[in-house]
Design a binder for these strands. Structure first.
Lengths: 305, 305
DNA sequence: GGTTGGCAATAGTGATTAACTATACAACGT
DNA sequence: ACGTTGTATAGTTAATCACTATTGCCAACC
């Protein structure tokens, strides 16, 4: 029993004439005859009474035809679904973002994606890189925004932008006089850091060779989010390092804080998109990338590769 | 897209492993691989993300699988219907009976059919032979009970029983003294006949050669049914001829009527079943025939052929 | 009563498809 | 680097599907 057979069946039920039904199905009369006979043999029931005068459908035949029509209808829905789902910009996209990007990127990203792909709602999760990677590999996420380096088997990455680091200090801090801060000087001050697990924490520690030793860390305090740390800095608890997208937008609005760039070579992080090599909706990823690059993130430099 | 393809599709969706899914479908892994790929090409969507680690279903793939399951379910219903309908004794049987048999046969027939084929309800129509023949050919009826001769293209008949004719007269009638009535004598009395269209009317007229001429009919009156005529006879309006099944059951219960057989050769009518040659439920017809023969119809002789 | 005409069934053939086995290829993990 | 696991591809065979041509069957018609 094939879908073609069922199509022949309903055509014959409608036309009550093998020749006409065959014509309507664009096949020859014997083709349809044989197919119907095959169906009858397979089901072991007589579906039609053939006589010279006309073709009559049997009682059981009528019921089976009705069911066949239902099958064909449902099968047609498959094509409909496929057509509707063919557009990579249709259907929800599960997006993961690390904690140190989400709050600054998403407010810009979401309306842009919605504008570019109105029928692609975003399902967003913020988490640590490691957790995002897990979800991505499991298929719980489709695309993630993370900082490089990021290497996972089966996962491809595409750098999107570079983002310089900034030094954030309380207003009136001694370093306020300097236009740019040398990275090594971070070791001198109580440095507020994110908790373990945040990749940005490690990146900051990379910046200052002196901080890297175990003793250096004795001078640091830990906060749970960049926002928390910013508040702590404002109260004079210490200084910190922020990515420019988190640091630059605020000094105007906050008299308690001062932001300074690093001296060259400016430390920075490279932000990338990552997805499974097998992920088929590359068009959706393009939209995300374009939306990120279109977002007004302070101080970032697009990576044109 | 075939039903087989859809079976492969749902198997893969369940197993998430080409090899296992293929095994479950009793085909080789390449067979299933190719089928899925063919489906994806045909629908122009990616249904699964293949990677070394595992097989992930895409968003659209999941929706299509759900729909495929629905299709397969409905298709399975077709087989169910066929199995249920395979029994010729299941499903209603449309039975036609001529007016001069119905009232005497049906009360016996119906419980017997119901006993032999409980899931075969009878849809019964009483009518003239000509009308029954029309309905039978159109397919509005499946089987009819008629008197022979009955010849129609595409229709086969099977004699079931012979039924002798009886003379019905008012109690105290002059012929009451005779044990049997010669057919020719019918011309002497006012003969009550059914209206035109009833085959039994014509059969009665055949019995008596003298009645056949135009003049003979002047002695007749017409009634609308055998029961009506019987009442008319009881009032002394004339005599009539009845089939034995209509005549024999009653004399005990009705002191106003007398029944006498004909002299040999006893006139009789041959009752038969008729159906379209193409009608597939021969088992149902056998049941009807058996039920008729099992009915206690007075005076009838089964036709064993 | 033979004949004709319409229609479905069958025969026979070719093309397509679906299945197999064997093997290549890709990606991880040791 | 190599082995393992798992999917894709190649190549072949068998089955199926669809075609044309023809037969067979009724019923209708002359």
């Amino acid at each position: 029993m094939t879908l073609t057979d069922l199509r022949y069946l309903v055509a014959l039920a409608r036309e009550r004439h093998f020749g006409h039904a065959a014509e309507r199905c664009n096949v020859s009369q014997p083709t349809l005859s044989v197919a119907i006979k095959k169906l009858e043999d397979e089901l072991a029931v007589t579906l039609f009474e053939r006589s010279a005068a006309d073709v009559k459908i049997t009682d059981i035949g009528a019921r089976i035809v009705a069911q066949a029509e239902k099958v064909l209808l449902e099968a047609g829905q498959i094509k409909e679904l496929a057509t509707a789902g063919r557009d990579p910009l249709s259907g929800p996209l599960k997006l993961g973002v690390i904690y140190t990007i989400g709050p600054y990127l998403l407010p810009h990203l979401i309306p842009r994606v919605h504008g570019a792909a109105p029928s692609m709602p975003l399902l967003i999760q913020e988490n640590y890189t490691a957790r995002l990677a897990e979800s991505l590999k499991r298929g719980d996420l489709d695309v993630i925004v993370v900082a490089l380096p990021f290497e996972e088997p089966g996962i491809v990455t595409q750098a999107v932008y570079d983002e310089p680091f900034r030094v954030l200090m309380p207003a009136g801090h001694a370093w306020e006089a300097d236009a740019a801060i040398p990275a090594a000087r971070l070791a001198e001050a109580p440095l507020l850091l994110l908790g373990a697990g945040n990749c940005f924490r490690d990146q900051v520690l990379e910046v200052c060779p002196l901080c890297r030793g175990g003793e250096g860390l004795q001078r640091t305090l830990e906060g749970s989010s960049l926002e928390t740390i910013r508040h702590m800095v404002a109260t004079g608890a210490g200084i910190t390092v922020l990515p420019s997208s988190a640091a630059d937008p605020l000094p105007e609005g906050n008299p308690l804080l001062t932001v300074r760039p690093f001296e060259a070579p400016e430390p920075f992080r490279r932000i990338a998109l990552a997805w499974r090599v097998t992920y088929p909706r590359s068009g959706a990823i393009d939209v995300i990338r374009a939306a990120i690059l279109g977002s007004p993130l302070q101080g970032v430099r697009p990576v044109t590769r």
